[in-house]
Simulated scan of single mutants.
Amino acid sequence: MISKDTLLSNDLFGDLNPRDWPISISDLPPGSALVGGSVRDALLNKLSQKPDLDFVIPTNAINFSENLSKKINGTFIKLDEKRDIARLVINGWTLDFARQVGENLQDDLLRRDFRINAIALRLTGKPEIFDPTGGINDLKSKKIVAISEKNLLDDPLRILRGFRFMCELDFELEKKTKTFLKNNVDKLSNIAPERMKMEILKIVNSKWNSSVWKTYLELQLLNEWNDNNFPYIELERKDISTKNLIFGSFLSKLIFLLSDEGLSRLTFSKNQIKRCKNLRFWVHKINKLDDLSEDERFQLHIDLEEDLPSFILFLKERDSSPWLKRWKDPHDPLFHPSAPFDGHLLQKAFGIPPGPFLGELIRYLSREKAYGRISTNNEAMEVARKWTLENSPFL
């Protein structure tokens, strides 16, 4: 009789479909194993078409990877010389090779962050699952369990990564693991800003549910990069996984997690910081929307045109659906403001030089169009002529 472990190993091997990999298993040295996210995701039936493949090999990972790159014509990248880790990139595939830590595969897996990431598939001979910590049971119970507090502190980014896995997998943090994370939040300040940013981007691009909000508020993982001056309660009422709004949740979660100063310290781009500032500014005015002047409402849509779904997440239910419907209409003149003419045509028609005056005219025409007071090109040209006569410093 074939054992359950053998059946599971065969199923896992089949799901990973090594025939599609850019390398052959025979290319790997004896004692090699596939570990990490691809094994976990295959067991969860969440495997992407070209998953990142992480291999543990007994020795000389960098030398092996460099030689293999020449054989398969892939791009070789030395990731960490001290820890002997390298990467190959070929045809959309990413393959990482790391030297085994410790005397055997079990030693290596016991040094990892969470039990769901300490599952290996041995690739020597018949495929064989190796799960020394009980990660498969955690996958079944949808729990994130740290192997040890010491392992988290070996690389404190793992503290933030535990929260990220909760978001991505829709799992719960085991009670003791949650305590580990909470007690060591201050260690995150020792992590390079670029590494923090990459982890945060994965967090805000994942789906959140109500338990994620609750856990984050309990852990306060990013307090050092946040002034906690933001109305999370309003956003908490929304289900961020709602299909209609999921594409707008990236920025709304980012301004909840990080202040503008925190974004800067964590090396976010100037464009990302500007977008967050604009969203934050208008969210603070959200309870006074009905009192906005025409020009203020127009400016809201200028500032937030591409990011309006993020703003809509903060609106009251009675407003969110009609706003979203209008934003989805690319021809809505207020929700997608545009001038009836470009600056070159206006310069030619009225002899206006480039500069602030031309910018004011374009804004005026855009606003008149947004509120339906211009509907044809002839009307727009006449409005432009009158405005120019009344306001031109050149006449």
Rank of each mutant, 00 (worst) to 15 (best):
M1S: 15
K4V: 10
D5V: 02
L8I: 07
L16I: 09
N17S: 15
P18R: 01
P22M: 08
L28I: 01
P30V: 03
S32H: 05
L34D: 00
L34G: 04
V39G: 07
R40D: 07
A42G: 12
A42V: 04
N45W: 10
D52P: 01
L53E: 06
F55W: 09
F55A: 03
N60S: 12
F64P: 04
S65K: 06
N67G: 15
L68S: 01
S69E: 06
N73I: 15
G74Q: 12
L79D: 11
D84K: 07
A86W: 05
L88Q: 04
V89F: 03
N91A: 10
G92H: 03
L95F: 00
L95T: 04
A98W: 00
N104S: 09
L110W: 14
L110R: 13
R111L: 12
D113K: 11
R115G: 11
I116S: 05
N117A: 13
A120F: 00
L121G: 01
R122M: 01
E128Q: 00
T133W: 08
K140N: 08
S141D: 10
K142P: 08
I144G: 11
A146C: 15
N151A: 14
N151Y: 11
L152I: 11
D155G: 13
L160G: 15
R164Q: 15
F165C: 10
L169V: 05
T179F: 07
T179Y: 05
K182P: 00
N184Y: 04
V185L: 02
P193I: 03
K197M: 08
I200E: 00
I203G: 04
I203T: 09
V212C: 12
L219R: 09
D227N: 13
F230K: 05
E234R: 14
E234Y: 09
L245H: 10
G248H: 06
S249H: 04
F256N: 03
F256L: 15
L257C: 04
S259I: 03
D260T: 15
E261A: 13
S264Y: 10
R265Y: 08
F268N: 06
N271Y: 15
Q272L: 11
I273V: 15
I273T: 09
R275F: 06
C276N: 12
L279N: 06
L279H: 08
D291C: 14
D291T: 14
D295Y: 08
D295V: 10
E296M: 09
Q299W: 05
H301P: 05
D307M: 14
L308E: 02
L308V: 08
S310N: 07
I312C: 09
L313D: 03
E317Q: 15
E317R: 15
W323Y: 15
H331D: 14
D332I: 00
L334E: 07
F335M: 07
S338G: 05
D342Q: 07
D342P: 03
G343P: 02
G355C: 00
P356H: 13
F357H: 12
N377A: 14
A380H: 06
A380F: 03
M381N: 01
E390W: 07
E390R: 13
N391D: 05
S392H: 04
